[in-house]
Amino acid sequence: MKRFWSWAAFGFGFCYFFLPMVGMVEFSLRMRRGTYSLDAYRSVLGDPQFQATFGYSAVMALLTIVFGVFVVVPTVYWVRLKLPRLRPLIEFITLLPLVIPPIVIVFGYIRLFNTSSLLPMTGSAFGTDVLLMLGYSVLSLPYMYRAVDTGLAAIDISTLTEAAQSLGASWPVILLRVILPNVLVAVLSGAFLTFAIVIGEYVFAALLNRPAFGPFMVWAGGNKAYEPAALAVMTFALTWGCMALIQLVPRLFKHQRAHR
């Protein structure tokens, strides 16, 4: 009896989650009257605006990842090594972007960095791009921080650091040759999450008025019939692809098995 109810609950959840998706996929295939076709996908992929905005967001995502790695890895490393008492505080700070709505953050940015401020970053397209990238880094911080922190917890960083030091390594060498390679898997999983977040992000890009993929999806949703469904399916596929990579990557690194 207990069994029955757990299966019933599972079945309900499954339907609740997947039926809309099935409907969406089905709808995205119906652009050509009377038969299933991939016309909607062809139309989306051929749209120059799609190509431009997707390319823009992809580049922003990569920059965000690079920036995040170079800020988060050394910070987490240093805090774990030298300032372990500060860890709760750092953890709290990295959680803030989940608590504060993006709209509040971006209004704060616009107030602080508008054209009549001391640091008028919104005055130029490049400055706004930098601001947007920094904003994305903040949004992805909770995920990046946690991924890297977990990665560093799996290795004995203080002993490895001391071993490297006794062999003559300086701090940059330790970070690049000892720490980073050993948290690469964790960094990559943080990176895929970041990519998924940045690709779909709407609020920052819209309010800073940059030609990103999120605003394009919203615009398409209001102006086209079948393409938004195709876009949504593709975005889902992309996000799930990132998740699958997170699962897959550790298997490609043989030496990591020692820790699992």
Partner: peptide, 17 residues
């Protein structure tokens, strides 16, 4: 890192990668 002193630890501390 400037002392040129070798060290062996209880936990081996080999670089896993």
């Amino acid at each position: 890192n400037q002392r040129n002193i070798g060290m062996v630890f209880q936990a081996y501390a080999l670089f896993p990668n």
